[in-house]
Nucleic acid binder design. Structure first.
Lengths: 150, 150
DNA sequence: GAAGATTGATTGCGATCACAACTATTTCGG
DNA sequence: CCGAAATAGTTGTGATCGCAATCAATCTTC
């Protein structure tokens, strides 16, 4: 490093607001799904499975997509399994593999909660943004994400 | 609600990339401060105190700014206290109040780590963004934040 | 100025999650 | 094929953090 290159005022503003507001935003979203007996972690798990073919996903793929460790997913599954929102299905071919499969009950719950959650995302975030800001956030985090994957 | 108003493709892209990338970004930043024996939580605590007058803050103000519960802050303080980065100072006027005060040791650590952390923020986020994106993120999260506070 | 409400902080407890160690299965190198 | 390495998942353990209860000090109200 030649010298510590500080953030200029606009960069600092963006960084700080992003960090602190993200925490507040996640807590507000948690509040909106809690009445359904869900955490955001549960919701994201159900949503992720619901988009997969046959509404099932291998445990390890699910863990990767949810940014959970393998053990973290095992523990999270405990909750959604006991609520019978998700079933554990053993793969017949590769017997190491287990699938997390959305049950009808889980699917019905998700259909009920998804519009409410989406409305929260709108109300708390998207509806406050201009089209330019939406595009900028999309392109910005896309670049950040690509860099992190490499 | 008249009807569930879905997110259009650009809104959905922004939302999803924001959510998933934020988790990855925080983990990458954790990795960069870990060599110094710090978590991001510790770092933010030290940074927050360092900017306050006399480099001290009331516990409850610190908790609010760090988005921690009171008990969460008490537990987090355990770590930085045992490392002697922060001292606990009882207020003489209002004896309910305790201050968290940065020690010289904590200040020296922060001076060492801050440029490295800032460089990480640049390398992982800011340097990938255009000026327009930086401004958009600043203004976007400013509006989201203002709405959440109200 | 005393009772009750409010504020500041800590403690017990439970939930979430990661790391390391482990078991079980499959794949690969020779 | 057979042993080693890789892959999938679970379990023990410890860290972090929030909620509810608690204690102590201050403020408010009559």
């Amino acid at each position: 490093m030649a010298g510590p290159k500080w953030l200029d005022p606009e960069e600092m503003k963006a960084w700080r607001l992003y960090i602190t507001t993200s925490v507040d935003l996640m807590k507000a979203l948690e509040d909106d799904v809690r009445p359904f007996g869900l955490t955001m972690g549960d919701y994201q798990l159900l949503a992720m499975i619901s988009e997969a073919p046959d509404r099932r996903l291998r445990m390890c793929d699910l863990a990767d997509q949810l940014r959970l460790s393998r053990s973290g997913l095992t523990r999270r599954m405990d909750g959604v399994l006991s609520n019978a929102w998700v079933a554990r299905v053993q793969d017949q071919g590769d017997r190491r593999v287990a699938y997390a499969e959305l049950t009808t009950k889980g699917w019905n719950l998700l259909r009920k909660v998804a519009p409410i959650h989406l409305a929260s995302v709108r109300r708390l975030m998207i509806d406050h943004l201009t089209r330019v800001e939406v595009k900028a956030i999309g392109s910005a985090f896309e670049k950040i994400s690509k860099n992190l994957q490499s």
